[in-house]
């Protein structure tokens, strides 16, 4: 190498030769370009408070901490949208484990459940997000490959049946096992929840879920102020931040108060049955006992709490 002799002879310090001057100039230019390149990061960081950044995991927050966090979020929503929302921490009820069943003979594929979910859970409006996907299936087959989602003819079509799919609230949820930071977990009433303020957005859970039940906030969800549902649960339908996962929670802000989920209320045909699996008198238990039910993809071993059945 040509510069070898130069290197060995170069002074260890001091003596600003031409090469050193050029290096300093280069470093200065590089630093300037660097600060320009990361400029969007500073814009982004302006919208985040230190409290928010340092917030602990949901399960490590004391009741007082959590109350403060929720108050901060309510205030933030008020500032950003002008809407007074009420965020509450709904806890699982003792002696309750939720189950859901769907009658495929009765479902007509009107997609009102998907729409109700969209409205109830403050979903991003531009993308039309919903936790429910309704598949139009070929009669004579349960092969998902024969299903399609964007049908637009009058329903029910005589040659088809309809299968809405949402989170199956598995008893062995692969999405929970794969999460590197325990940002998602299964609660005692069977609902798999996400701490939106702890999720790092790696989307490993989305890859692991066999039911396409998880959704990612590719951008900050946009909901017009007039359409925001103000009754919000901390672990469910509060306005989500950008870059985190979300999923169906069986509307825990409703169901943990004893109410039916929004998708069930929207169902005009009564294809949906919801209730407490631990109550032998419940309607869901009646279905499990008296109908021939099946679960989706039983072979993957996820043990869903969501069941499908037929009348005929």
């Amino acid at each position: 190498m040509i510069e070898t002799s130069e290197q060995t002879n170069a002074p260890e310090a001091g003596g600003m030769d031409r090469r050193t001057a050029l290096k300093v100039l280069g470093a200065t230019l590089g630093a300037a370009a660097f600060s320009q390149a990361i400029a969007p990061l500073t814009e982004w960081a302006e919208n985040m408070s230190l409290d928010e950044y340092l917030q602990k995991h949901y399960r490590e927050l004391s009741p007082v901490d959590l109350a403060m966090v929720m108050a901060r979020m309510e205030k933030q929503t008020k500032e950003q949208t002008g809407v007074d929302v009420h965020i509450q921490d709904y806890r699982p009820q003792p002696g309750v484990k939720f189950g859901y069943a769907l009658n495929l003979s009765v479902c007509v594929g009107c997609r009102r459940c998907a729409k109700a979910c969209h409205i109830e859970n403050n979903h991003d409006r531009p993308s039309g997000n919903s936790y429910i996907r309704v598949l139009e299936m070929e009669k004579g087959s349960l092969d998902l490959a024969k299903g399609r989602v964007n049908y637009d003819h009058p329903v029910p079509h005589p040659d088809k049946f309809y299968m809405p799919v949402q989170c199956q609230q598995c008893d062995k949820p692969p999405c929970v096992s794969v999460c590197p930071v325990e940002a998602t977990w299964k609660e005692s009433d069977g609902i798999v929840v996400v701490d939106y303020n702890w999720c790092i957005g790696c989307r490993y859970c989305e890859a692991a879920c066999p039911y396409h039940a998880r959704r990612f906030n590719w951008t900050k969800p946009q909901v017009p102020a007039a359409e925001i549902n103000p009754d919000q649960g901390y672990l469910s339908n509060r306005l989500r931040p950008q870059g985190v996962m979300e999923k169906c929670t069986f509307c825990l802000h409703r169901s943990r108060q004893g109410k039916l989920p929004a998708c069930l209320e929207a169902c005009p045909t009564g294809a949906r049955v919801f209730g407490n699996l631990l109550d032998p008198e419940s309607e869901i238990r009646w279905v499990l006992k008296n109908k021939r039910v099946f679960v989706l993809k039983e072979d993957v071993g996820t043990q869903p709490s969501f069941f499908y059945f037929f009348d005929e």
């Binding site: 039916l260 009564g270 919801f274 009646w286």
Partner: peptide, 25 residues
């Protein structure tokens, strides 16, 4: 059969509470 299913809550739409101790349906 439809009546049986109806009476057992698995036919026909509904609104309100799944937990009847908490509210109406």
């Amino acid at each position: 059969p439809q009546t049986r299913d109806y009476l057992n809550g698995s036919h026909g739409g509904m609104k309100g509470y799944w937990d009847k101790t908490k509210g109406e349906r």
